[in-house]
Design a protein around this nucleic acid. Structure first.
Lengths: 182, 182
DNA sequence: CAAAATAGGTCAGCAATATTAACTTAATAG
DNA sequence: CTATTAAGTTAATATTGCTGACCTATTTTG
C-alpha cells in the first residue's frame, strides 16, 4: 500500500484535534440535564406557590383568587378580556373568582371612558393590602433565591424564563404588547 | 458655630462617596424586580406545562398523569409513599391517577423484596414510550431556553431554582435524601 | 339608522383534580 | 401477640376548570 504513515511527517504532529466548543458557548442539553430542568421547575414552582397558601386559607380563598389579584394589581385598569388572556381560563371560570373578589371588596370595577362596555378592574385598598400580604410571603423566598444566584445568575434566570414563554407573554413582560397577547 | 466647613480642607475632597455595591455581589431585590420574577415564573411554567397537553389530550390523560409518569420514570422502583411525598397530594388523589396508569398498562407494580408491603412502581415499555413523547414535547422548549441563556445563565437558573425549593426537595434533587423527603 | 360585532354577564351541566375521613388488608416490628 | 406501617378502598365534598347557550349594553359598520 502506498498510503503514508501519518505520524512520520513533522507537520502532522501539529494538526489540531477536531474542536467542538469554539463556535459559541456550548450548553449541555442532554437528557439528564433536561430532566433535571423539569424537576427544578416542578419543585421550585410547587414550593413558590405554596408559601402563599396559608394566607389564602385563612380567608377561604384559593390560588385562582391570588392569580387574579396579582395580575389586576400589576395592571390596574385591565379589562376582563385582558385578564382572561393572561390566565388562559374561560370567562365562566374567571367569573366565579372575580365575583367573589368583588363581593368581598378586594376588586373594584369601573366602566371604560371611551368604550363603556369595558369593565376596568382595579384593586381596592383592601385588595392592595391583601395582595401585598400574599406578595410578601413569596417575596422572602424569591429574594433569598436571587441573592443565592447573584446578579449574573439572575440575568441567566430571566433570559431562560423569558425564552420558555410564548411570544405574546414575552412581549407582555417586556412592556410592549397588551395583556390580550399574553 | 465652630463646625468646620468640610469642603475647605484638601483631605476632605478625597473622601469616597458612600459606596453601596462593594460588599459582595449586589442583587436587585426591589419590588419591581420581585414582581417581575413572579410574572416570569407564572408564564414560563404555564407555557412549559402546556406543550405536553396536546399529547395528553389524545390519550384522555391529564397533567396529574404526566407528573406521575415523570417521577416514576425518574425514580424506578419508587413507592407509593415516595410518590405522594413528591407530588404533595393525598393518597386518594394519587390512587385515581395511578390506577388509570396501571389499567392502561403504563405503570407496573412489584412487591418489595425486603418489605413486601411496598409496591415498587416502574414504567412499562409503553409507559416509557409515552413519557418519552411527553418529555420530547417539553425538551424542545427547554433546550431553546438553555441555549438562549448560555452556560453561565444555566448555572444561575439552576442555583436560583434550587434556592426556591424546600430543603427536602433540594436534597432530593442533589441525589442525597430519598423521595420521601422531597 | 339598522345590522353586525364586541365586551361582558349569566345559567346549566359536566369533568378533572384535589380534599378529609373512616375502614380494610397485608406485612413488618416490637 | 400487638402495634405499626404501606397500601388500597369507599364515600362525601370543594375547587377549578370546561362547553354551550343565551342575554344585555355598547360600539362599529354598511
Amino acid at each position: 500500500m502506498l498510503k503514508p504513515k501519518l505520524r512520520e511527517t513533522k507537520a502532522d504532529r501539529f494538526v489540531p484535534p477536531p474542536k467542538v466548543p469554539p463556535p459559541g458557548p456550548v450548553v449541555d442539553c442532554g437528557d439528564p440535564e433536561m430532566r433535571l430542568a423539569q424537576d427544578l421547575l416542578f419543585f421550585a414552582y410547587r414550593d413558590f406557590t405554596t408559601v402563599a397558601d396559608k394566607v389564602l386559607e385563612e380567608l377561604e380563598l384559593g390560588r385562582a383568587h391570588h392569580r387574579a389579584l396579582h395580575f389586576i394589581g400589576r395592571n390596574p385598569g385591565i379589562t376582563v378580556s385582558g385578564l382572561l388572556a393572561i390566565l388562559r381560563i374561560t370567562k365562566q371560570s374567571l367569573a366565579r373568582v372575580l365575583n367573589a373578589l368583588v363581593d368581598q371588596g378586594y376588586v373594584a370595577q369601573a366602566p371604560g371612558f371611551e368604550d363603556r362596555r369595558l369593565r376596568l378592574l382595579t384593586l381596592t385598598e383592601a385588595g392592595q393590602a391583601l395582595e401585598r400580604r400574599l406578595f410578601d410571603s413569596q417575596r422572602e423566598k424569591l429574594a433569598l433565591a436571587y441573592r443565592a444566584a447573584g446578579p449574573q445568575g439572575v440575568l441567566g434566570f430571566r433570559t431562560l424564563m423569558r425564552a420558555m414563554m410564548d411570544k405574546g407573554a414575552r412581549d407582555y413582560i417586556d412592556g410592549t404588547g397588551s395583556p390580550e397577547d399574553a
